[in-house]
Design a protein around this nucleic acid. Structure first.
Lengths: 342, 342
DNA sequence: ATTAGCACTCTAACGTTAAGAGTGCTAACA
DNA sequence: TGTTAGCACTCTTAACGTTAGAGTGCTAAT
């Protein structure tokens, strides 16, 4: 790929900025006027022609201004954008919003999704942090009526599974406590593969409970990601390029259809470094329904322990500087939470 | 309100059905042709005129067919619609989908929201079942590193709160177990008001834990509804009457903005009877953003113990028979779940 | 290398027109 | 008295033609 002259970079950058602001194609004459360039429109036109040949700009039709192509946006994001960091005032405001929260990961995810969506005017998504390897931590059995027992399984990292079990035989609360304590001691720190090595003479009820535990842990291991929080879907709809088109609906459908979304997330190579941000522009050729959209994703959490994904989906014509620094900031926020809790 | 002749009812009913199917205004001539009526279009026209005078129909413009008004839909739903019950085949299919689920209320809500949204082609919403009065059931304290302790509070009905507490003083796991057991016995069945009657010489740590418990229970009491599950928002967008308009966006915004949604739910009088269904048509005058939408709501759960709300939001031009019976069915499904678990 | 000038192209907006659908009214009919 | 045929009228929608404006690419001059 031919490298561009500094003037060409300057012009490309201005066009991207102007188009993001106005949503309209930008022409040579307006460009020089608006930014007080000491060049004539004709010169700018020549450069724009070169950029068009290079595949970074295109014209919606012969007599319209230029619009960045996917490739143009990519070049902009990768080479031209000045890495803005989030203004301290905004950091402070957001931190304040979270300072009054309980320590519940669910609540944090919800609030993060909401604030991120509002500040970026995009749809936001967050997947729950997923432990790299699920390990047993604690078991509690609480009798209800009859043979009904509320079983609570605590996994390392604080994940909690609860279920009402109908026992095969009636058991007193006394006995339940004994079983709980026994299992909690014997199984502590064991992963799915080592749960069933726990072989001793077991009562029917103990066997039943153990089966349930193993089942839950295996299931937690297998589900690649758990819950997904979405917010701000309607933000995307208010963008002018989606006014009344099917495009937006199909893009949002991608988010709502969790299985498709999981595909997308698992097929995307995220930078391993926490705080690293991946920008997908225009579906990157693979996702037809995202041709007009861009996605910004970041992994968060504690590598090797538990990680999740946070990101936004907005129109390709989005304010990348802002959005990227916001995603990065929230990624850090949730990482801190996870590190502190796990 | 003047009562209508049987023929007028018949015609109103046909118009509603036809308009729901076609999304277009329906004219007298097409009506007689399509349904093979042994009346002339002129007669039908006269009746349509009467129905228009009665406020049940309107014309988008002079030379267009008729469309039901809000009032017209209301009359239809209340008086004309034959109460269809869900076909057994569909019941069976849905039951089957749920038969393989774990007993987790979250999972059930999610699946129910998804299936309900798909089958009604509308947006669906479900609020988590909320206990009528929150009562303590069980406490568990599990030591982590240092003074960090994972506190798990089980409320009657199976609601679980967890939080990582930083204790004021270091405490061994032994002591934690003793505290857990003591609290679990002494506080069992107590509600928020009676938690603090538990006055005995308390250690610093015990006091700290007790404060936390009280706090959590009060908070649970005060929050009128907890989590809200949404699904199928994009379904609404594909309706022709919303093609490219702001209307749909604003209606969906109402759902996404949880605080507004809670307002709406709390201001709506739901039939107390479980399985009863409330139909709100066109925002019922109060909700401007819902002028083109209808909402079908039903309370589910176990009255006096724990209840939640389930419902859908779709275009006013929706298939009420289908939708109502689906909402009713899912309401029953979740009620059964709650009754069984609580 | 840059720029002024100009012919050219294409869109968006506007007005006109014609076709089609549906109505309301009147007068005839059973 | 209820029903129907006929007809003039209204209004939307699509199609077409026109025009103003914006932006371009090219050429020739600086």
């Amino acid at each position: 790929m031919d490298t561009l002259t500094t003037r060409q970079k300057k012009i490309l950058s201005l066009i991207v900025h102007e188009h993001i602001a106005s949503a309209d194609p930008v022409g040579s004459k307006n460009l020089v006027k608006k930014f007080g360039m000491d060049l004539s429109s004709a010169t700018v036109r020549n450069e724009m022609g070169a950029l068009t040949d290079a595949g970074l700009l295109r014209q919606p039709h012969t007599s319209a201004g230029r619009v960045p192509t996917e490739e143009g946006y990519r070049y902009f994001v990768r080479q031209l954008m000045n890495k803005t960091s989030l203004p301290p005032a905004i950091r402070a405001t957001i931190n304040h919003q979270f300072s009054q929260m309980t320590n519940d990961i669910q609540q944090w995810m919800r609030l993060a999704a909401s604030v991120l969506a509002n500040r970026t005017h995009s749809a936001s998504l967050i997947t729950a942090p997923q432990a790299s390897e699920v390990k047993f931590k604690h078991l509690e059995l609480i009798g209800a009526h009859g043979r009904q027992v509320l079983a609570i399984l605590v996994l390392e990292g604080g994940q909690i599974h609860q279920q009402m079990l109908a026992l095969d035989e009636p058991v007193t609360q006394e006995q339940l406590s004994i079983i709980s304590r026994k299992f909690s001691q014997e199984l502590a720190g064991k992963n799915a593969g080592r749960i069933n090595l726990f072989i001793e003479p077991l009562t029917t009820v103990e066997k039943q409970v153990l089966d349930w535990i193993e089942n839950e842990i295996i299931r937690s291991d297998q589900l690649p990601t758990g819950e997904i929080i979405l917010d701000g879907l309607t933000n995307v709809l208010s963008e002018p390029e989606f006014a009344g088109s099917e495009e937006a609906r199909r893009a949002l459908r991608l988010l709502e259809e969790r299985s498709i979304l999981q595909d997308l997330l698992s097929q995307t190579i995220l930078p391993d470094a926490i705080g690293g941000v991946q920008v997908l522009i225009g579906g990157e050729g693979s996702w037809n329904d995202l041709r007009q959209c861009s996605i910004i994703l970041s992994k968060y959490g504690s590598p090797g322990v538990a990680t999740g994904t946070i990101g936004i989906l907005g129109p390709m014509r989005m304010s990348y500087g802002n959005s990227i620094s916001l995603v990065r900031f929230f990624s850090g926020l949730l990482s801190d939470f996870v590190t502190q809790q796990w």
